[in-house]
């Protein structure tokens, strides 16, 4: 098990190097530091001096890969590739274009993101599994049929509709919660409720339908017939036998997104004015702040790889047949 985790971690290194090289090419070769500076300073009436100054302030004045002018190790370390790209491996994200530390921003902004994402995920799974079990229990009946129809309608409606509709109804018409904003502690609760509810509703249709097919697949298996032949009640067959087996695909599907949760939701956070990492990324994209976008792309990759590793480990916990070696 330990050996497996170490090996998987080693496998992750070439993937991360690939991600790193790719972002380096995209952010510094395809789009040169001069282009970035011009984009920020404005295309017209920009002197070369202003550009050089802007680059020097942010450390973009160095050569890309090899520094001919420096001596010794500096040849390598005094470059954009080393300072900006390789530094990501040490989680040194540097400073954003407006001069603030990106690492600092991430560590403060992840909490609002988590405050939204974690309840959304947990409540979402709970509700989706319950409804899916209900539909599986009444499989083939009208309850099942109409349940699936409603799921498909819910999947077909755009997420933006739930957000805007929810804000309009609950926030503007009924004045139950503020339309947007964020606060810490107990006072933050009223800001969190609506985005969480909308996040849950938005994912419900797809979730119920997916979990229902997991349950139905398990219900067709031989061991279910054995359980019935023992004289167990249908609810016991469903809850102990079917649920336990169906939890394997459900859980592994969830674990893989677990680490990426604190990256937040891009859309939800922007619409509700939550100062999380999702809105941070959106703002950075709008402001053409490549330093932030680059940091978030790299962080996202690391977390996704971590998620895949956790998925494989979680298999061993829920499925006695799986042993990692």
């Amino acid at each position: 098990m330990i050996a497996y985790i170490i090996r998987r971690t080693l496998y992750a290194i070439p993937i991360l190097i690939g991600v790193n090289l790719l972002t380096f090419v995209l952010f510094f070769v395809v789009n040169s530091p001069d282009d970035i500076a011009r984009a920020h300073l404005g295309v017209k009436h920009v002197t070369q001096d202003a550009i050089e100054k802007w680059k020097a302030e942010r450390g973009y004045d160095k050569p890309l890969i090899i520094n001919e002018r420096a001596a010794g190790v500096e040849k390598i370390t005094g470059t954009i590739f080393f300072e900006k790209s390789l530094a990501l491996f040490a989680f040194e994200f540097g400073r954003s274009d407006d001069g603030r530390s990106i690492g600092q921003e991430i560590s403060t902004r992840m909490w609002p993101s988590l405050a939204i994402a974690v309840p959304t995920l947990i409540i979402g799974i709970g509700v989706a599994v319950s409804f899916a079990l209900l539909l599986a229990f009444f499989r083939g009946s009208y309850i099942d049929l109409w349940g699936v129809v409603i799921c498909i309608i819910m999947m077909s409606v755009s997420g933006l509709f739930y957000i805007i509709g929810g804000q309009y109804l609950v926030g503007k018409l009924w004045h139950l919660v503020p339309i947007s904003g964020y606060d810490v502690g107990v006072h933050g609760f009223k800001f969190i409720v609506l985005p969480v509810v909308i996040g849950v509703i938005g994912g419900l249709g797809a979730g119920i339908r997916l979990y229902r097919t997991f349950f139905l697949e398990e219900l067709g298996k031989d061991y279910v017939r054995t359980a019935r032949a023992k004289g167990l009640s249908e609810s016991r067959v469903l809850f102990t036998h079917v649920l336990k087996n169906a939890m394997i695909p459900i859980l592994t599907g969830v674990v893989v997104i677990l680490p990426t949760l604190f990256m937040g939701s891009l859309i939800l956070e922007s619409f509700f004015g939550i100062p999380g990492l999702g809105s941070y990324t959106i703002d950075a994209i709008q402001a053409q702040d490549f330093a932030v976008v680059r940091a978030m792309v790299f962080l996202g990759s690391v977390l996704y790889i971590l998620g895949l590793l956790l998925t494989d480990i979680s298999y061993t916990l829920v499925d006695p047949r799986v042993r990692l070696a």
Partner: peptide
């Protein structure tokens, strides 16, 4: 249900798949 598995029990052709793998 009292009859099933109680007074009348049944075994099946495929022992490989007829047992619940996670219990």
């Amino acid at each position: 249900r009292e009859v099933r598995g109680g007074r009348v029990a049944m075994i099946f052709q495929e022992p490989m798949t007829s047992l619940n793998p996670v219990l």
